[in-house]
Design a protein around this nucleic acid. Structure first.
Length: 556
RNA sequence: GGGCGAUUAGCUCAGUCGGAUAGAGCGUUAGCCUCCGGAGCUAAAGGCCGCGCGUUCGAAUCGCGCAUCGCCCA
């Protein structure tokens, strides 16, 4: 609807410009069209006259009058235009226009909102939790966000890859192996002490117990570091299998699982050092290898190889991001927990040093999830056994509820996730409210069939321009903004805007349903038009839910 | 000490092309079932958009300063 009107206004401005001999370099497109929040101001309002008035030496209202006269009443799509306030032009579309809009929504079916114009290859990396324990709710939020983002980006024309980066190398992994070894010793009756930085959840003991039978006779005689290595590998296998299962149950998809260890095995870390060194972006100092990240806006240089020869996480992260670009991706999106935000400048610096535009690399920071039950905080803390796992949450409230709740708030604000609320069947539970639209429309269509439409009326084409109530126009208008909502989500990387869109649409529909008896047996032409509208609402809701990774049930 | 983010109704939060009277849900209050799913709907009350200065015809929105909270780094 905006495009149609914008071109009408621009061509009117062109005509006026020619008559009045405005300077040719004048930007005639620098105005906006917006939906006024006051319905009295029409369907769309433009500030064109106010923006241009000063530049062309006219009063805003006079220019507005001129624009209105020039557009004239030529288009059957526009019902009225008026100049209001300081110089706004308020447009009201005709029922015919809305009928055409709705027809377009219906004819595109499940492809409404899809944009096939290719927009490049993008790799979304999400979850990437260290394989040191089960996923918790915080990971769930990142998972829901990444997965929804990937679906949406793909729907609007990006070629999307989804990846999980497995941190299966480094210090944390040795601690993991050691933690298992200690428990193994304990199981064999030895008296043990568990250092403070070891992982101590029950699952560590479980891993030790499961591993024990397969270790063989000679295990006990092996040197400690070899024992640790074996147990580390074992633990990673078990924990990653658990993580993959949790993600499957949560309906999260990853195309690739990228191993940090493989970066070392394939010498990609050294190669990225070589690359940086050749460009003069590294130096040696105090026995360590440094990356000159201050040259790219970071506030201090960063160590890649410590004086004891150990690589930092940053070292492999550079290699990893280089590898991702080398695979041919135009854009990288990483989804991280907000506590990593201090890490962004150095990775941006690395991306620059690798010769890429830092804009090609975006980080979406996901804030904390506060898990509540009936408004009371549920205690969460990693490393201890008391944290609440994603698995437990999904088992309790279901994947649909969990996913949509994770996506109700902007990722940059902390989220309260109330387990009881997620299960409740009420207005404030967005899952039920939105899914209920689909179920309700479905039941409505069934009801209409039972009502046996007049066979004569059924032969005629449906006349959508019979839809003229404010509620109906409002719904069509909202439907028509679905594609631009998706594009905004893709641009801003904020899927919660889609959730909020769906809630708005659901609200409009439920209100409409409450206000009118949609199946009117005395007026089949209108009933049929209304059923088409209901179908379109269901269709768009279903597309939207699917993009969030949530099911659209026929019945509830 | 430095950096990032936040601050909007009693509570939880939308509001990111600067627009006319700042929105939603919950909660509160008052209503609606001879009616397509009441898992719902209608209405009312409730706001110096943290504070100050600036830019602008116009600021919750942009800039600067301050305060408070959270996180990261020293």
């Amino acid at each position: 609807m905006k495009e149609t009107l914008r071109s009408l206004i621009v061509s009117a401005l062109d005509k006026i410009a020619a008559q009045k001999q405005w300077p040719a370099d004048l930007d005639l497109g620098g105005f906006i069209l917006e939906e006024p929040n006051n319905p009295q101001f029409g369907h769309l309002a433009s500030n064109a006259a106010m923006v241009l008035a000063k530049k062309v030496g006219l009063k805003p209202r006079d220019l507005a009058d001129l624009i209105v006269q020039t557009i004239g009443q030529g288009s059957e799509l526009i019902e009225s235009m008026e100049v209001a306030g300081p110089g706004f032009i308020n447009f009201r579309f005709s029922n015919k226009f809305w009928a055409k809009t709705l027809e377009n929504v219906l004819s595109l079916g499940p492809d409404f909102g899809r944009d096939n114009a290719p927009k490049g290859r993008v790799l979304v990396e999400y979850v990437s939790a260290n394989p040191t324990g089960p996923l918790h709710v915080g990971h769930g939020r990142g998972a829901a966000l990444g997965d929804a983002l990937a679906r949406i980006l793909s729907f609007v024309g990006y070629d999307v890859g989804c990846e999980y980066y497995v941190n299966d190398a480094g210090r944390q992994m040795r601690i993991l192996g050691n933690s298992v070894l200690v428990r193994l010793n304990e199981l064999m009756g030895k008296k043990v002490e568990i250092p403070a930085d070891f992982y101590r959840g029950d699952y560590i003991t479980d891993i030790a117990r499961e591993a024990a039978p397969s270790l063989g006779e000679g295990f006990d005689k092996l040197p400690e570091n070899e024992k640790v290595e074996i147990l580390t590998g074992h633990a990673i296998g078990v924990i990653m299998a658990g993580i993959k299962k949790d993600l499957r149950d949560f309906k999260i998809r990853h195309d690739t699982w990228f191993s940090e260890k493989s970066l070392y095995e394939n010498h990609l870390v050294e190669k990225s050092f070589d690359f940086l060194e050749k460009q003069g972006h590294t130096y040696h100092k105090d026995g360590a290898l440094w990356f000159k990240s201050t040259a790219f806006g970071d506030d201090k240089d960063r160590v890649l190889v410590k004086s004891d020869g150990e690589m930092t996480y940053f070292a492999s992260d550079i290699a990893y991001h280089k590898e991702k670009f080398d695979r041919g991706y135009d854009q990288l999106i990483d989804i991280w927990g907000a506590d990593h935000h201090g890490y962004i400048p150095r990775v941006k610096a690395a991306v620059s040093a690798l010769g890429r535009d830092p804009e090609d690399f975006s980080v979406v920071l996901v804030q904390l999830v506060n898990l509540l039950r009936d408004g009371k905080a549920v205690n969460m803390s990693t490393r201890r056994a008391e944290f609440v796992t994603l698995e437990e949450v999904v088992a309790e409230v279901g994947a649909d509820a969990a996913r949509i709740i994770f996506l109700t708030r902007s990722h940059e604000s902390a989220l309260d996730f109330d387990l009881e609320l997620a299960k409740s069947q009420s207005r404030d539970n967005p899952v039920f409210y939105v899914q209920y639209v689909c179920a309700r429309v479905n039941s409505l269509l069934g009801k209409a069939l039972e009502a046996k439409p007049d066979p004569e009326a059924a032969k005629l084409p449906v006349d959508l321009s019979l839809l003229s109530a404010n509620e109906e126009i409002e719904i069509v208008k909202t439907l028509s903004t679905f594609p631009e909502t998706l594009l905004t989500v893709a641009k801003r990387l904020e899927p919660h805007l889609l959730t909020s869109y769906l809630s708005t649409l659901a609200k409009l529909f439920h209100q409409y349903y409450g206000a009118y008896r949609l199946v009117d047996e005395d007026n089949w032409p209108l009933t049929r038009a209304r059923l088409e509208l209901a179908k379109a609402v269901k269709q768009v809701t279903a597309i939207g839910l699917d993009l969030l990774g949530v099911t659209a049930p026929e019945k509830m």
